[in-house]
């Protein structure tokens, strides 16, 4: 990274750059591909589950095939984005999702009422959302494969897989609705998933620890 930064002649002024990179290109690609595939999965899930929607849409086999193959493809953009040299920013954020300070755990347990902690790049709610969606993909894919290739599994497992797949689908719909509402309520953060950047001002208000991390980056020394 240090080598790459040296290419910029006005490096010293970059310290004064009012913008920080919150999501690089790879992360934005991963987010929007994931969002698109989830949208297809949730939309096709509606007729598969609700009789009222099935009455309007029908075409069971076609909808099943779209749903199944979208689900199978779902992890691909994420895995491609995480792999290779281009995925370093994304991998760093996944590590942020994984590791929590005691303060963040306290914040979560109090449902955000404990406000006296310094926030990292992501607040505990955002981290939990990312962890939940990421883990859901694995569980939904596993149970979905049992339902699609049912011949390979005992009937009891298929009933169990249906149960888990349906229950988790409801939880995912709630989480995604919450994610979208939160995004619409926080316009600056929302813009950053389109443009990739966010102001230092925002970071000093919402992500103080991240701002310090960014200042401490060796390439800025």
């Amino acid at each position: 990274m240090a080598v790459r930064m040296r290419q910029f002649p006005e490096m010293n002024t970059s310290r004064l750059d009012p913008w920080l990179v919150r999501f690089d290109r790879v992360e934005r690609f991963a987010h929007w591909m994931n969002a698109l595939l989830f949208a297809i999965l949730m939309l096709t899930a509606l007729p598969l589950y609700f009789a009222q929607v099935e009455a309007l849409v029908g075409r069971r086999l076609l909808i099943e095939e779209i749903h199944t193959w979208t689900g199978i493809f779902l992890p691909v953009p994420l895995l491609v984005s995480l792999a290779g040299s281009w995925g370093s920013g994304f991998r760093a954020d996944v590590r942020r999702f994984n590791l929590w300070s005691k303060g963040e755990l306290r914040w979560l347990r109090s449902f955000g009422r404990v406000s006296m902690i310094e926030m990292g790049k992501f607040n505990p709610g955002q981290k939990l959302n990312a962890l939940f969606i990421g883990s859901s993909i694995v569980v939904m894919l596993g149970t979905g494969l049992i339902l699609r290739w049912f011949n390979l599994f005992p009937l009891g497992w298929r009933t169990g897989a249906t149960f888990v797949h349906d229950l988790l689908a409801f939880a995912i719909m709630v989480a995604v609705a919450g994610h979208v509402v939160q995004a619409l309520m926080h316009k600056d953060a929302l813009k950053s998933i389109f443009t990739g950047r966010i102001s230092r001002e925002w970071a000093s208000a919402h992500a103080q620890k991240w701002l310090i991390e960014e200042k401490d980056r060796p390439e800025l020394e």
């Binding site: 996944v94 999702f97 994984n98 590791l99 929590w100 300070s101 005691k102 755990l105 981290k127 939990l128 962890l131 939940f132 990421g134 883990s135 859901s136 694995v138 569980v139 596993g142 149970t143 049992i146 009891g156 497992w157 009933t159 169990g160 897989a161 249906t162 149960f163 888990v164 229950l167 988790l168």
Partner: peptide, 24 residues
Amino acid sequence: AVPVGRRVFLAMAGLGAMGVIFGT
């Protein structure tokens, strides 16, 4: 630092597998 991510993932994968086996 606590590896909450790993725990959430293992918990959900475990619950999912249990749900498949005992879901009936």
